[in-house]
Design a binder for these strands. Structure first.
Lengths: 267, 267
DNA sequence: AACTGTGAAGCGTTTCACAGCT
DNA sequence: AGCTGTGAAACGCTTCACAGTT
């Protein structure tokens, strides 16, 4: 079974092959990015905020300021940035453009990644038109669907291919990232075709657990799961309010306090 | 600053009130969900798989079998299930329907949650039509957009309201979960309106860090971030292949091995 | 004086391994 | 014999706190 991770879990990046002693493993890891997975996700967030700041003409920023802008605690933020190198100036802060460049380099955004989107429903349309990625990008190189009526119809300025051609087209265009936005049923077949076409990274929106070889990386985004997690928090909150016999006052919605950081409601 | 979590971080569930001795805490914790956040996310995954199995007539399942179906290691899986109670039978396994029921109860899916979707672009359309949530659901109760041309036009069988009416309509319909699928610019205002309308849980697709009061829970799904994380892994992999001077053989796509669990490609 | 960079402590999650039940 | 449920160890991530630099 291969590495497969939902949005939202800590996990092992599984670097060392089985049979390697722990002592040697750290040596084998020579240049391998020793950046915690959790930090990688946040670097992407910093990048977006920093790109915006750069566009607005901001040139210097402290970890505290960036902390406010990103919602990430400043100690964590500094540690995250330290993983990619020492690009700050003590007593001053970070140079915004330097940071943008270094994060882009770390995330591998200096090379172009061709993206294929499979499943041109509403979600696929949304993805196909998602041109506005922050700083540089992920050109969508190919679109696929099963529906013959869609063939040739340009979506976001691109023709739609049939899913049967996934392998050939992906290989030709050297697609590096595949996005699966199909219904659950077709997802595994699509996944297989993408892998056969040379795709090694997949973003999966279909509510299925994809089976892939070990060398393929899958990330999953599951809307139902996200809603259910929120549901859990609604329920937990309701329980707490019952337990603590707070008579009334905060059961009713409280108007006028939104968006003011620091407003604390009694619990 | 309030609780706000990307898909992908651990954090504190913050159960016991301060000033309670550890011994009493477990008593106080009576009903309070002491379930690790990471486990909650996985429970939602188990639920989907189990619902499918139930529909297929499967009545019993072992942790090992469920492990294969969900891609979650069986020890972790058993521990996760133990958080919601002891519903397995030693020597036998779990009753599928019992598990479905207990997970639904734990996730708070026995109550209905009204969902409001704001921003009826491609993504909003996709969400509005996302009726097919696994086992029961999240009825979408209201749609909102800024575009006057959309007002009254039914989307997924529902009329679209103007964003100016978010507060009123959400309060009237007792919306518990708000989904923000607008462009970045409008998102914070929309968020404020939702909170004023009594919404306490928000799923945010807009690429901004929302500012909310402490009592509001935000989850964020950021497509660009997901792609960038994948990009990082592409880059890391490329580095590794350079490092380890593997001459050739596995640089070219390898056909015909997809979807077979257990197939291991030499690295 | 201000702010970064980082060891070390703290904490939550995962994994191990086995006792306990059927 | 088989499988669950769970303490305890291992691991990774976060937070603390401060030495180091400008």
């Amino acid at each position: 079974m291969a590495a497969q991770r939902d949005a939202g879990d800590g996990f092992t990046t599984d670097t060392a092959a089985p049979g390697v002693t722990p002592v040697e493993a750290s040596v084998v890891r020579e240049r391998a990015r020793a950046i915690p997975e959790a930090a990688v996700a946040r670097l992407a967030v910093y990048l977006r905020v920093l790109s915006d700041l750069s566009r607005d003409g901001v040139t210097k920023i402290s970890s505290e300021e960036l902390s406010v802008a990103t919602g990430v605690n400043s100690a964590k933020l500094r540690k995250d940035l330290s993983y990619i190198g020492s690009y700050g100036t003590r007593g001053v802060g970070y140079d915004v453009d330097v940071l943008v460049g270094q994060i882009e380099r770390t995330l591998g955004l200096t090379r172009q990644h061709s993206v294929a989107v499979v499943g041109i429903g509403n979600l696929g349309h949304a993805l196909a038109n998602y041109g506005g990625f922050p700083g540089r990008g992920f050109p969508v190189a190919a679109l696929f669907d099963v529906d013959p009526d869609l063939m040739g119809v340009p979506v976001g300025g691109m023709p739609v291919h049939h899913v049967n051609d996934i392998r050939r087209v992906c290989a030709e265009l050297e697609v590096t990232i595949g996005v699966i936005a199909t219904p659950a049923q077709g997802a595994q077949n699509v996944c297989d075709s993408l892998v056969q076409g040379g795709v090694r990274c997949i973003l999966n929106f279909a509510p299925v657990v994809l089976q892939v070889p070990d060398y393929v990386e899958v990330r999953k985004v599951d809307l139902a799961v996200e809603l259910q997690i929120l549901s859990f928090h609604v329920a937990r909150r309701a329980d707490q309010e019952q337990d603590a016999a707070f008579s009334s006052a905060h059961a009713a919605p409280q108007p006028g306090v939104a968006s003011v950081p620091g407003v604390v409601i009694p619990r």
